[in-house]
Design a protein around this nucleic acid. Sequence first.
DNA 1: CCCTTAGTTTATAATAATTCTAATGTATCT
DNA 2: AGATACATTAGAATTATTATAAACTAAGGG
Lengths: 138, 138
Amino acid sequence: MVYADHYINKLRKSGLRPTKQRIKICEVLFDNDQTFHFTIKELVKIIENQAKIKVSLATVYNTVHAFINKGYLKEIPIKSSVSYYDTNTAHHHHFFDENDGRLIDINHSDVGPIDIQTKIPGKKIKSIEVFVKLEDQK
Amino acid sequence: MVYADHYINKLRKSGLRPTKQRIKICEVLFDNDQTFHFTIKELVKIIENQAKIKVSLATVYNTVHAFINKGYLKEIPIKSSVSYYDTNTAHHHHFFDENDGRLIDINHSDVGPIDIQTKIPGKKIKSIEVFVKLEDQK
DNA sequence: CCCTTAGTTTATAATAATTCTAATGTATCT
DNA sequence: AGATACATTAGAATTATTATAAACTAAGGG
Ligand SMILES: [Mn+2]
Ligand SMILES: [Mn+2]
Ligand SMILES: [Zn+2]
Ligand SMILES: [Zn+2]
């Protein structure tokens, strides 16, 4: 549990004004033991449940985008119909359980070095992400 | 270059009636030396350019979905705003050049074995895909 | 403090990809 | 040829996301 002051400072340092909407979204996103993955729809629901204040849908979108730009969230393109976001911004990988559409983190350290033997002229590797699809064990 | 008869047989064997729309889409998708990636919008454009016949947008969507179900196409979730499809259905990986939004195949054999040290109880690995983001070399 | 201003929130409209509907058309089987 | 299940189509509906523009507010200077 972190006090709102912490988020106020964090927002100010990022050049974002600490509005009550943003502070509440920070609490919802970052006041957790665990990082997690979410869609905008899910985030709106969490805010509705936890918060006394109302936050408009537009502000939820705006804030998520602002936080992505600042590096506080990552977008995970796993389904093309809806955007998934991740509060874990460390370099890591994912299981994806297609049965229930759930993403599960794989620590970077739990994946061996990845050896890519193809080169693209004029380009260099910016990041490597592994997606592991799961199915029920027979 | 393959004759239409080939696709007629392929469609029939799949339980899909060989309509002139589906045959034309087969030609556009599979009559190539190289596999490729495409969006629905791009596919519609290719069809418009190559084909004498008109194919409705609904049929393009229907056919792409039918072909995915039959395993003749794969969906590549790389952007959440639009679906990318792949005529390469072999197990392989991808570079993604964020500058121009282009996908480039990486042969399965060009990626070393991937060692995942995390286990999820009751689940087993169905597939492993690697996405490598590219940036311009300094 | 009070103003000013730039940044923010918000309701609502607009956009765009995709899916649905239901009428018309056609491949296939008898 | 006739019956029928499957397929195509135009257009409407849906849904996630973005844009708009008016009202609101945090921040900084006086
Ligand atoms: Mn993640
Ligand atoms: Mn591919
Ligand atoms: Zn994650
Ligand atoms: Zn590919």
